[in-house]
Design a binder for these strands. Structure first.
Length: 351
DNA sequence: TATACGTGGGC
DNA sequence: TGCCCAAGTAT
């Protein structure tokens, strides 16, 4: 296929959407260089996450930690609390590891090198290519969900994902230009986000409408094909919310691995596949517990969860258990520091 | 290659 | 309402 990048770059010059982390083409022509820290932070936040959800988090992070060195020096708990609600919490743990590695191993500056970027925690093939191209204008092809869809359509590729990824990557690399690779990367992702959408693609206004094989053949709306997903099981559990007379709450720091790793949470039972009649697990303090009316329903990536919430007003000290919990005062903790499922449990106690 | 890993919005 | 989807990475 001929070089299609010019049509897309011309489209991007006019239609580039403003985003807090983005350096638009006009600013670049005026000599403004993208800030690699801002590009990196935004790309990590944008992994499997919408622009609408990321924007407020990005603004808060850059306000609080303006440079990668500032972030590297932050307390773990502060970063996890600031990330709370955004999901995929391994990203936040790796964000800190990466910031500290950039300071310790690269003198506080992101390396302008794809292979070196790929070695850093939380930076995989997509993010390394995005940083290389957007921050450093190196010609590396990005392949995210948008680009997969755009490539599948213009080449009318019917192999289902994820098996089609190597094929789609070959196409993406073939189209990536040596000139303005950063603008091109953002342009092809913008195209997928705004015109070449999953449903009802706007082929009538697409700058790549003419060469697009799927548009010619009428297959665009059904591409890309995907292998079927497995059904989500329903799991059940109980959380225990202990409220001290001074307003402090009993919370535990979850282990660094696994679901909600590194985040604060209410002590409670394991989450199991069977529903029991009674609350499960062991209360974290010996006290009078009452069941909160209602239940928490929450869906994770691979299962549905139904939580029973138990509440107690007590000044008992927590029992020493496998997961040590401690009281956190009002100045140490706010509900916005919690991952969403735990915040839902908290909210249930206030209704 | 397959699975674990969050959340909120759109239809 | 329930399913699909969103600028993926680690294991």
């Amino acid at each position: 296929m001929r070089d299609l990048s010019k049509e897309l770059l011309d489209w991007y010059d006019v239609h580039a959407r403003a985003m807090p982390w983005r350096t638009p083409p006009a600013d670049k022509r005026a000599g403004v260089r993208p800030d690699p820290y801002a590009v990196w932070l935004s790309e990590v936040m944008l992994q499997q996450t919408t622009v609408a959800a990321v924007t407020a988090y990005f603004n808060r992070f850059t306000m609080r930690w303006p440079t990668v060195a500032d972030l590297a020096a932050a307390e773990d708990g502060d970063v996890m609390a600031e990330w709370a609600g955004l999901g995929y919490y391994a990203r936040a743990r790796n964000l800190l590891k990466c910031a500290r590695a950039v300071v310790a191993e690269h003198g506080g500056a992101f390396p302008a090198d794809h292979a070196a970027l790929l070695m850093l925690p939380g930076i995989g093939p997509y993010t390394a290519a995005a940083l290389s191209s957007i921050a450093f204008d190196l010609p590396h092809a990005v392949l995210d969900g948008n680009v997969e869809r755009v490539m599948a359509r213009i080449y009318d590729e019917h192999t289902p994902l994820p098996a089609a990824k190597p094929i789609l990557m070959t196409h993406a690399e073939a189209l990536t230009p040596d000139a303005r690779p950063g603008d091109y990367a953002q342009a092809v992702m913008d195209l997928g986000a705004t015109i070449c959408t999953p449903k009802s693609p706007a082929c009538g206004i697409c700058p790549w409408s003419d060469p697009c094989l799927a548009r010619q053949r009428g297959t665009a709306p059904e591409l890309p094909r995907k292998t079927p997903k497995k059904a989500k099981p329903v799991r059940h559990g109980t959380v225990y919310i202990a409220r001290r007379s001074d307003g402090a709450y009993l919370l535990e720091r979850r282990p660094d691995r696994g679901l909600l790793g590194g985040m604060l949470g209410w002590p409670g039972s394991d989450w199991v596949d069977v529903s029991l009649d009674r609350p499960e697990g062991t209360p974290p303090v010996n006290a009078q517990w009452s069941k909160v009316q209602g239940e928490v329903r929450h869906t994770f990536t691979h299962f549905h969860l139904i939580l029973t919430v138990m509440l107690s007003d007590t000044d008992q000290k927590p029992d020493a258990g496998p997961n040590t919990a401690g009281y956190m005062t009002k100045t140490e903790f706010g509900p916005s520091d919690l991952p969403t499922v735990m915040r839902k449990a908290f909210d249930l106690t206030r209704h």
